[in-house]
Write a protein that binds this DNA or RNA. Structure first.
Lengths: 251, 251
DNA sequence: GCGCTCTTATATGTCTGACATATCGTCCAG
DNA sequence: CTGGACGATATGTCAGACATATAAGAGCGC
């Protein structure tokens, strides 16, 4: 576990160390506000220079995972400080064994809030160019047909193109969320169920509504699409467990 | 402009350089995929070592603002790659002169999507502890009364407490957005209009709805609150300008 | 014993200079 | 004109050193 997939590709040492440390933090290896090993110790442990460890620390601190203070050392930050929509944080959190089914449903829930609204905005604000991007992605989805893996790439492009068509810079930030969620779905789907083809009509409904600038229909169609996804994941992963909180909502 | 507010406090050199470079990038000083000055040149320009510049680069690359490749150099990334919900990115973008009224309205628009939904979730999922946090923030708001500056802190805490009460980790990521938007509002309000007191009843409506677990009412109340904020900003800042896009929506 | 100041050890922050490595241009040979 | 060799260049990594803030303990007066 000390040297996991550090040499998976042409990843720089800095990135590799950041990935391993980041994954450990989001996996809960270090409690909130607990000290992580010092720079010198980590540099020895990884056989790298202190420079590299420090640069990895900077990457992680920019993502809200750690904070350094002189003399005190570097501490893992509590979960509410993590940048949950950062692509790396999402990936590390989802990769760390799927010990967190609740997190998957939290993601789906946020998507169910954001993406229908995005579809509605796209219906109102799309241009020829941004609409074309959505249409291209959809066409590629149709071609990909029944292969769940091939299907994933145009699927992600489809949803990202809708975000881009909203003409709202902030909306783009949700691309990482969609991408991470779709990635999970692919892994789940490849273990269990059949072809992704049944979702094509649902995507088509979204595209059609956007094309004719029908914001309400776009909202509804996207909601339906995400509902299907949620039910699919629910069936394959199991219902979300009880909250991690001490006190549970009295319902 | 070369050495702006670099010594504003006890900011490390790394952070100061990252802040200045980051602000320059979001301000559009460097076009998308344009080279930023090399590490050695910047280290000379700032009178710092290359180490510090590199660590600043790591901070910025973790926020999606730049990307480095060997031999090629380091390039500013296009806007769609920026992590728009990162607190620093938001701050730099809003601080850079308010040359971007459209961005302020983009923020408000996203808040209008996320926060009502968050209020509804909080109504369903809050616990004794998370509800107490909301109530405390609200009480402090009432005390702050008519001072727009004093009002801002409990206001931010109020909205963040609602996000925390959703019992959804991903929701916490929107705290930075709320905080940034409220900061803008304070600056706008201090230049123009009167006391923030009129918004107290609107906040109270949100709190009451959450307390009695009425999700729909909480959604509506939060929407009303944000509507008021939006109209306020609109009145003081002016309507959003036309899109920056080449082709405009045909309407 | 209790509280205060002063010292000291420690971990991060910064600097320097060097070498490694990938890659973009260019140039030359076929 | 094509394709491969080669050097220049900017980032990536390394090593060792010093600076600085500060938590923790030592010492001291009360």
């Amino acid at each position: 576990m000390t040297a996991t997939a550090s040499a998976r590709r042409k990843e720089s040492r800095t990135a590799a160390i950041a990935a391993e440390l980041g994954a450990a933090i989001v996996a809960g290896v270090y409690r909130p506000d607990e000290l992580v090993p010092g720079e010198v110790e980590l540099s020895h442990r990884y056989g790298a220079s202190r420079t590299v460890v420090r640069e990895a620390f900077k990457l992680l601190s920019a993502k809200g995972l750690i904070a350094s203070r002189k003399r005190s050392g570097t501490r893992a930050r509590p979960r509410e400080a993590w940048h949950m929509l950062d692509a790396d944080v999402l990936a590390w959190r989802l990769k760390s064994g799927q010990a967190e089914p609740k997190f998957v449903f939290d993601l789906l829930h946020v998507r169910a809030i954001v993406e229908p609204a995005a579809a509605a905005m796209a219906a109102r604000s799309h241009t020829a160019a941004t609409l074309a991007a959505i249409e291209t992605a959809f066409a590629d989805m149709e071609c990909a047909g029944h292969d769940a893996v091939l299907f994933a790439d145009p699927d992600i492009r489809f949803h990202k193109a809708i975000l881009a068509a909203t003409d709202n810079d902030v909306m783009m930030a949700f691309g990482a969320l969609t991408e991470a969620a779709l990635g999970v779905f692919v892994r789940v789907a490849s273990r269990h169920a059949g072809a992704p083809a049944p979702s094509v009509p649902l995507h088509r409904a979204v595209l059609d509504a956007i094309r004719r600038r029908d914001a309400e229909a776009a909202h509804a169609a996207m909601m339906a699409l995400l509902d299907r996804t949620a039910r699919n994941v629910e069936r394959n992963v199991g219902r979300p467990r009880a909250s991690r909180r001490a006190a549970k909502p009295s319902k």
